[in-house]
Amino acid sequence: MSKVTKNRLGTGLYIFGALLTAFSLIALAAGRRGALSLALPCIGLVLTVLGLYLNHSYHTRQGTARVSLYLLLVVGALIMVFPFYWMISSAFKTSAEMSIYPPTWAPRNWLNFENFRIALNTAPFEKYFLNSVMVTSASVAATAITTILAAFAFSRLSFPGREVIFSLLLSMMMVPFEMLVITNYQTIVRVGLNDTRFALVIPFTSSIFYTYILRNFFQTIPDGLYWSARVDGCTNWRYLWKVMVPIARPSLVTIILLNGLASWNSFMWPLLVIKTDANRTLPFGLYTFTTEVGSNNEQMLAASTVVVLPMILLFLFARKQIINGVARGGIKG
């Protein structure tokens, strides 16, 4: 067999086998059962491998590697996205549709907002939403300010014991949150803020971890910038806000987004300190709502969609910033 025919045969077998595998797998997924539908993917796979063996040129190997990689990524993405899809699609189903077996892939009517209406009328979700927005923005704003100031002090100002204090702070990160909950709870109760929205903000106005990340970023900013600014008459305060903060913007955006996400989703702490319905945040409200509506899964999922949606939208818009910030922090910090 000449080399050219061998290569051509290989390529042909490879493409045929790959297509056979793909189509028979789709058929299998679509519900065709039987000896043939099970055997076909296997035959296809064998043909693909055989084709690859006959023509294992750089091109085909490269192509196979790429296709396999993308297949893997697609599968991973589907696994990640599927629960969200299920949540959203179920939110549009009627209760009759929900109980069909086997479950349907899509609701019969994508414009069926009935579940949302019922859910939003049963519990004051708009109140929860407002609480969540208030608590999240207050804690994010406070954390951002304390983080910036602390990171500046630990990276730029020199004072006795700076490194010792910073090490002590870092060691605090080893204390699990569940342990802090006990002391935080006692403090909040003694201060008399139990069951208020302040109780949701005050313990979360600073973050050692974010301070650490930002300090590391600040340290990469050359000294020359600081001294140039000082010689030009810039005060520390002004230098921080006019030079350091704008330069650190990608890191800051990441910190703010991650912090906002954590704050928005926090559940355990509100569950402990909030009793009054009017002070509940979204995740906690959702939790009480689900216990109240019982087995009405479609309404529960409609409510969940409402809760999760703002964060998903935020992430989609700020995706690039978050990834940049994390990558940068990873390399430099």
Binding site: L225, S228, D232, P246, I247
Partner: peptide, 17 residues
Amino acid sequence: EQRGIGLVFQNYALYPH
């Protein structure tokens, strides 16, 4: 800032933003 000096560093120290 009160000495009335101008300073240029080896790495220029321009504000990147």
